[in-house]
Write a protein that binds this DNA or RNA. Structure first.
Length: 847
RNA sequence: GCCCGCGUGGUGGAAUGGUAGACACAGGAGACUUAAAAUCUCCAGGCCUUUGGCCGUGCCGGUUCGAGUCCGGCCGCGGGCACCA
């Protein structure tokens, strides 16, 4: 008998699927539709195991849905704009466009051998003018509907290269190429009004029942709805135009603990002072050093500058507080000003100790009380309710009730208003870069900012650009900027900013429903195919990409590009873990790590015998060389082995470690299944006898694998398939029962290992393709066993077991349990205190 | 710093609040073979006084007849933090 030859088998069945054209999605009102989508890849050049895992999971779902009679849409495309293409152009002199399309061709060629059930006729790249032209049309519609506007915003500025830097390009506060200290600088930029949808985006999270709870929680925290008090401190002898400092606080219950007021270096008062005073200007310049990320700002050393100005406390006008400019206060949140309460906030506490400000405890003492000299006192969740002193004679509870009481008290006394604020800021989409979708507006000296006419779209990126100087090539292009004003016809200049690549990925799922429509979407197609029934991708997109997509679905609906039902574009979301691998390294003379590829290492040693250090289980990354190329694995074992392995060893939401032995074992198992099936097919044994145990196992396997796939329990489903294979291999049944069991095995494996499944299905005389064969259904009667083993516990510890009929009444089970040796011994003639019988599960005797 | 998650044998992991360790990897013993490969069979959490007993799911405490699972606190590791995609 021949052996399982993966490469022949896989090529054969991929051709068969292509010939039958079974993955092309067409509208068909007679069948339920199912849209499964994996987050589309960035065309970096090579696919990696993370891609294999992501697309395999989507493929399992897609193939399972095909088998259960659904009309499946399973498309693929490329998130093709972005910085790496420009970096490659700068490093090697090529063009971002050539680099990107070459990468797409390479990656498509690597992806096809995986045997994915993709409708390739719908493929597009976001850098295709056909796609980004429609995106420009969307932008113009958003502009018309008031969903886009311009305002100033802070960017990372490299003062040597005179260019804007991405956060990624700021290393330890310095520009990645120039090494200069990065500054925060304001530019006029385009913004989407996502914050107008904050309340809706928050409330609709409750409707996303099939999203992971943690993703919903992360989005909830990101949107950050809070109720607080907005009020003003009266400013004493402030500069002209400044008589108060508006503050927003979520902790008005601690107002009596105030010991300073802090304002952002970008606060209007700070800017006024900066113009008037050199010492303030010097401090603000210092405070603006470093990157713009929240992490950089909050981790930076807390610096404050005493302006010398004083404000009056709203409850006691004789009480004066100093005004500090502080580098950790963000102008984007609240009012850009805070009051500091060092007694009950760690950051304020640190600040107060550094600048020698008073630390006031506002919580009334209860027994064994706190001392806030060493650390701020923040009550624990589990502690008794605390009371705080708001003003003399007013005591209020802490926590939410206290905040509301404090707001009520303040409003009643004319000190500010209770307001609701969101942490969510508007989405800045301007990028000062070439390789992105041009923003389709024109700057005219007479008319100002004018939208392009839709008939002029797409506004194409020019091909003749150079990357030999820092900055945006569109800015220095000799002619591209020149145009006629769409309104008055006078000579005008194009906007040279391009769009954030998150814009590209915020609506591609809608475009897949009609990838070549002359408008952004085709409403009939969108009505049929939307929503995405199952979306699958990395947890790293839990906030930004998913939130932006949710906003876009709403905005597109406002502009008539999506039907009402698509307000939430992704009905179900699954976030998968990473593929990890050990890192192998040796040290150079200076002790710096030198990384080695897995194939260079054998049994912990390099070919020359040098022992390597091993760092366990880290995310695969080219720089650490702990990567395995899927193409190598496919060449060695076949795609089914790679698919089987990435699904088998870990739950899909968790990381999976790629190991050579695991891949080897997966391949051995698939070869075994093939061999077992081939033996059954070639056997001349009689059709009977049946094997009741085998058939029961088969139905249990159908049941559990079906449930496993339905709930993304792929690893558990695969474990069940291993067990069933073991049972089948040992069965003494006749050819009839074995053939039936093996065909079922082929069907159950087909979503995971479709090529192998087709091959053994055909071998065993299955009709047509297993891919399109109807999914098997478990016989409910075969799932119930006649007898069960019940563990006997004494005081919750297992002491024995009894085997009883499954339907034995509780009273009978109790009698049997009480007669059990271990129970008799434990009772020593006494009566049990209690007996708990959970039918079919357990007996617990309390003595 | 802030938000979120995870932690179970040598390893990956399984377990609607109900027999902890399914299934697999690595390991050990054996069969087959001149031999190897391949394949097949069996063993396998730790400890002890071994037909039995004790301990055991990061640590400390709680709820419960019963906790890997629920609650509180801690420790460790990972993801995100708005211009990486």
């Amino acid at each position: 008998m021949s052996r399982y030859a993966a490469s022949d088998v896989e090529a054969k069945w991929q051709s068969a699927w292509e010939a039958a054209d079974i993955f092309r999605a067409r509208r068909d009102e007679t069948r339920p539709k199912y849209y499964v989508l994996e987050m589309f890849p960035y065309p970096s050049g090579r696919i990696h195991m993370g891609h294999v895992r992501n697309y395999t999971m989507g493929d399992v779902v897609a193939r399972y849905k095909i088998a259960t009679g659904h009309n499946v849409l399973h498309p693929m495309g490329w998130d093709a704009f972005g910085m790496p293409a420009e970096n490659a152009a700068m490093a090697s002199g090529g063009h971002p466009k050539d680099w990107t399309y070459a990468n797409i061709a390479d990656m498509r060629a690597q992806m096809k051998p995986l045997g994915l059930s993709i409708d390739w006729s719908r493929e597009f790249a976001t850098c295709d003018p056909e796609y980004y032209g429609q995106q420009q049309a969307l932008f113009l519609d958003f502009l018309e509907h008031g969903l886009v506007y311009r305002k100033n915003a802070v960017v990372n500025w490299d003062p040597v290269d005179m260019t804007v830097l991405a956060n990624e390009q700021v290393i330890d506060g310095k520009g990645w190429r120039s090494g200069a200290d990065v500054e925060r600088r304001e530019l006029t930029q385009w913004f989407f009004r996502i914050s107008d949808y904050a309340e809706d985006l928050l409330e609709a999270l409750d409707t996303l029942d099939n999203w992971p709870a943690k993703v919903r929680l992360m989005q909830e925290n990101w949107i950050g709805k809070s109720r607080g008090l907005q009020f003003a401190f009266g400013l004493i002898d402030g500069p002209e135009g400044h008589d108060r400092v508006e503050v927003y606080t979520t902790r008005p219950d601690t107002l009596m603990g105030a010991s300073f007021v802090g304002i952002s270096p970008d606060h209007p008062l700070a800017k006024t002072l900066e113009r008037e005073r050199d010492d303030v200007a010097a401090f603000c310049a210092e405070a603006r050093k470093g990157g713009t990320t929240a992490e950089a700002i909050e981790k930076a050393e807390k610096l404050g500058f005493d302006t010398g100005l004083r404000v009056r406390h709203p409850f006691d006008t004789a009480w004066e507080l100093p005004v500090y400019i502080a580098n950790f206060i963000l102008m984007e949140y609240g009012t850009g000003a805070i009051f500091g309460c060092p007694g009950h906030d760690q950051r304020d506490h640190d600040f107060a100790r550094k600048y020698d400000l008073p630390i006031v405890d506002t919580f009334l003492p209860i027994e064994g009380d706190h001392d806030i000299g060493g650390a701020p006192y923040v009550p624990l969740k589990s502690e008794a309710v605390r009371y705080t002193r708001l003003v003399a004679g007013e005591e209020i509870q802490t926590g939410e009730a206290g905040v509301n009481a404090a707001i009520d008290f303040c409003e009643a006394n004319g000190v500010g208003q209770g307001v609701t604020k969101f942490r969510l800021r508007d989405w800045g989409l301007s990028r000062q870069r070439y390789w992105g979708c041009p923003i389709p507006v024109v700057h005219c000296d007479t008319c100002g900012v004018v939208p392009e006419r839709k008939e002029n779209l797409p506004i194409r990126l020019p091909d003749d650009v150079s990357f030999d100087a820092p900055g945006n090539p569109l800015d220095r292009h000799p002619t591209w900027r020149d145009c006629a004003c769409p309104r008055c016809g006078a000579p005008a200049r194009r906007e040279t900013d391009t769009m954030d690549t998150f814009v590209d990925s915020s609506w591609y799922y809608a475009r897949f429903t009609a990838p070549h429509a002359a408008t952004p979407t085709d409403m009939a197609e969108a009505e049929y195919w939307m929503n995405v029934d199952q979306y699958i991708g990395g947890i790293e997109h839990a906030i930004l990409h998913l939130l932006y997509s949710r906003f876009f679905a709403r905005a597109m609906q406002v502009c008539g590009h999506l039907p009402g039902k698509a307000i939430e574009p992704f009905d179900a979301l699954f976030t998968q873990g990473m593929v990890t691998h050990e890192i192998y390294l040796t040290r150079d003379a200076a002790g710096r790590p030198v990384y080695h590829l897995p194939e260079e290492v054998s049994e912990g040693r390099l070919a020359d015998g040098t022992e390597v250090e091993i760092i366990p289980s880290a995310k695969m990354s080219k720089s650490k060389k702990n990567v395995v190329d899927p193409s190598t694995i496919i060449a060695q074992y076949g795609a089914d082995t790679a698919r089987w392995f990435v699904l088998s060893d870990s739950p899909p939401e968790r990381d999976v470690e790629w190991t050579a032995s695991g891949a080897e074992a997966a391949h051995r198992h698939l070869a075994r299944v093939w061999r077992i099936a081939a033996e059954i097919a070639a056997s001349d044994a009689p059709a009977t006898p049946d094997d009741d145990a085998l058939l029961r196992e088969m139905h249990k396997c159908i049941d559990e694998v079906t449930k496993g796939i339905d709930s993304f329990g792929f690893n558990a489903a695969i474990a069940r398939l291993y067990a069933f294979t073991n049972t089948l291999a040992k069965s003494q049944a006749g050819k009839g029962a074995k053939t039936s069991a093996a065909r079922t095995l082929a069907q159950l494996m087909s979503p995971m290992t479709p090529h192998l499944a087709e091959d053994i299905w055909a071998m065993l005389g299955g009709e047509g393709l297993v891919t399109t064969a109807p999914w098997p259904v478990a016989d409910a009667e075969m799932l119930i066993d006649d007898t069960v083993i019940l563990p006997i516990q004494i005081n919750g510890k297992r002491r024995g077991e009894i085997t009883v009929p499954a339907d034995m009444p509780k009273s009978e089970v109790e009698k049997l349990a009480l007669a059990h040796n271990a129970v008799v011994k434990a009772l020593e003639g006494a009566q049990p205190k209690k007996i708990i019988v959970v039918p079919g599960r357990i007996v617990n005797v309390v003595v």
